[in-house]
Amino acid sequence: MITPQDSLGSWDTRRIVRNMFPLLVVLSAIVLVAGITLEEAEEMLDRYGLLAVMVPTMVDMGGNLGAILSSRLSTRFHLGTTDLDPRDRALWIDIAAVIALAATIFTALAIGAYAIGVVLGSDLTLSTLLVISLVSGMSVAVIAVVFSFAATYASYRLGVDPDDTTIPIVTNVVDVCGMLIFIGVSAAVLGF
């Protein structure tokens, strides 16, 4: 008997490309919003170069946290060990760990950026950087958690392979939110 496991099934090149490419185009169009936001903030980034140094981490770390969560969820779907029941304790442990990781990493980002600023000669204080990093970072982390669940659950219910959709959707939405929040919080804190 031939089961889907025996044939190449979802591991066929053309099938992967056909499933993913349209999604990639849509996602790029969405993230274009983040790009335009970045371009509009060029003057502020020119004035405070340290903000530019923080941009890739700020934008990607939310995606990282979301990806850790959705990757754990989608593997458990594959193995059939979860059904997204809110009483499932493993889900809450995952969330708590992701939030704790976010608090640690965004504190470290502020300290790292401050250290670079000392070398490069920046006038941003550590407390300013901590406020910018933690306010935007923790907001992004919460958004990452919510979207990881929503996207994994939706692809599970729609019967789409979560590996092909969940991680891209989570990282992109979080990317855009990360950029908008980071630029917005920075502008508010620095009065730009």
Binding site: L24, L27, S28, V31, L32, A34, G35, L38, P56, V59, D60, G63, A67, I167, P168, T171, N172, D175, M179
Partner: peptide
């Protein structure tokens, strides 16, 4: 950001 996001995707 679009280029970086695509690497992730």
């Amino acid at each position: 950001p679009v280029f970086l996001a695509t690497r992730g995707n």
